[in-house]
Nucleic acid binder design. Structure first.
Lengths: 212, 212
DNA sequence: CAGTAATGCGAGTAATTACTCGCAATGGCT
DNA sequence: AGCCATTGCGAGTAATTACTCGCATTACTG
């Protein structure tokens, strides 16, 4: 008994040593993403991820010290994509006014989050449960930073004082509406964009003190 | 070994049989709430709840067939409170116009959710993970129903067509902003109310199609 | 081809935890 | 007081799962 029968091992011959590590990491992270979006957080365990990746648990733990670290890596990857998309969009836009500056950002956020809606939702979800690591916190701050920069540029059209609070609120609004739409299966970017824009502009420019 | 030493048992003498069951249920649900808000979802387990309630695990399982059932009961209780507060507020308000109809609802929601912020957040959170039971689904629908009724009454001031979608979106916005404020510890109802009102009114009345 | 460091493997371990079941205490009854 | 149905108890069980460790395989070096 307990005869160690080597089953189908990884075929690594093709990949030179130097690139192996990066390849393994990417394979495992992508497997984690797939498990998370198909089985949800409840069905997410390291053994399942390893199996999906076609890798042993031992190997998984060679690259990630813990389950949390794996989730953090995945979260970081997805967040970096979002940040990249948003930052790039912001840089390109000429941004003559508030509305035309905001719209592309909203559109970029929608496109990114709806590309893999279940994954985005699961992560949005997980990120508050998890005590975020430094890397995650940095990228979150990056998104808020871009929004703050935008608000700062159009200060005159904006009726809020606390720009950081506003940035965080706007991000929360966009997330909530995108996640909600995704959960209902209403994946119609145009309508969604319009709804988010209305809420966001109302937040920034509205006067809610209108008495009864 | 294994001598069954009865430790401090429940002192029930005071409570007549008929009321016992309800008392136990309430005690356990409240203990569940406290565990959830102090240790979070990760630290929430039935043994901890039983201990906190001063009740044995056996007793817990006498009243709740499963952990999920317990969470569902808690979720249901909190949600019913929210619905009650909102429905009552809606009934009382004369509601001459959209703004003065919406504001009390927003205020009621804020008050309810900030009464026990950690609990509200944990539940908001848990409710999407959980496949909601019929009771929960009904109460969710109840909140949306009140909002839809309100929107219907003020149709002329509202620029949206799909009232159900709008109701769900508005609830999501309010939740996101309240939960976000709670997580940051910014518990200042007045400012929060204003921010939510601006976003909500923007959503309902704004024209986001303003070209660049 | 032989030697060997690096790498992958996966059975096993320890910890957690939802849940059961047989027994003990209780208190309402006569 | 004595009976006994009801109710509470909590040690134990089974399942899950994060993670380890010693070994097998690989592929680079000469």
């Amino acid at each position: 008994m307990a005869t160690r029968v080597a089953r189908t091992r990884l075929r690594l011959r093709k990949i030179p040593r130097q690139q192996r590590s990066a390849h393994m990491v990417e394979t495992i992270v992508e497997a984690a993403a797939r498990i998370l979006e198909t089985r949800g957080l409840a069905g997410f365990n390291t053994n399942a991820v390893a199996e999906r990746a076609g890798v042993s648990i031992g190997s998984l733990y060679q690259y990630f010290p813990s389950k949390e670290a794996l989730i953090a890596a995945l979260s970081d990857r997805e967040r970096k994509r979002l940040v990249a998309g948003i930052a790039e969009t912001y840089r390109q836009a000429a941004a003559p006014d508030l509305v035309s500056a905001l719209r592309p950002l909203v559109r970029a956020a929608i496109r990114q989050q709806l590309a893999r809606p279940a994954l985005a939702r699961a992560l949005d979800f997980e990120e508050q449960r998890l005590v975020l690591n430094e890397a995650d916190r940095r990228t979150t701050q990056d998104i808020a930073g871009v929004v703050m920069a935008l608000l700062g540029r159009h200060r005159r059209q904006v009726a809020v004082h606390d720009l950081e609070e506003a940035a965080l609120d706007l991000i929360a609004i966009a997330r909530a509406l995108i996640d909600g739409a995704a959960s209902r299966g209403h994946v119609e970017p145009a309508g969604l964009e319009s709804r988010i824009m209305r809420a966001v502009l109302g937040y920034l420019t509205g006067r809610a003190n209108v008495a009864a």
